[in-house]
Amino acid sequence: MSLAAEAFVSQMAAAEPWPENATLYQPLKEDQILLSDCASSLAVQTYLRMCGLPVQVACRANAEYMSPSGKVPFVHVGNQVVSELGPIVQFTKAKGHSLSDGLDDVQRAEMKAYMELVNNMLLTAELYIQWCDDATASEISRPRYSSPYSWPLNHILAYQKQWEVRRKMNAIGWGGKTLEQVCRIRSAFATSSAQFFFQPTELDALVFGHLFTILTTRLTSTELAERIKSYSNLLSFCRRIEQSYFEDKILSVSLSLFIPSLIPSL
């Protein structure tokens, strides 16, 4: 989003209170949504719950194309459409809802740096596993991604997406990495950031979204989830957030693609 557009959005947003009918759009949760999108969507939902802002979740097969930035999730609030966690945090801040007000400048800068790191490492790793690991791509990602479309469009769109992600991976130098390396990177990262969770901020929402999704999603290899499970502080972090913000069990409904048997093990 350009600076001018961002300024415009925040100015517009400040004028109106948060409406009751705010809606979050994500791909179809049963058949379509992928790990990375699900994690991002859960992060935004967690953040909005932490702020105490009500939001309805709507599933649309074309959510990705409806989003102004081409990324899910996005929220439709009043007549505003804002996509991805960063801009949504800005947007709620303009409306007077913020989680990071209690932090000093240094902490806030650190938090922003960590958030960037999560997006750069965790999200990239998720994308890598989804689209660059051949087994996952052919057994899970491509069929799920293209499930709403009819032949031959389903194949065209899935391969187009895969090609796009792979090109991006090559550009940032992840193209040659193996699954093993990627898992190591993310678990190493996860431990380093885990010490930051002493009060709920947007960073916690983001990390929770990603970790919880990884822990509860069935993939071709469970290596990733196993690695995260070996850190007890991460597990207790996930459990704490889940209990504080998702007590009403909406989560287990909204994330029905996850294996329920994993949740008690947390």
Partner: peptide, 10 residues
């Protein structure tokens, strides 16, 4: 938003 909802492939 009505136009936005129509976005995508068919």
């Amino acid at each position: 938003f009505a136009v936005r909802e129509e976005s995508g492939h068919s």
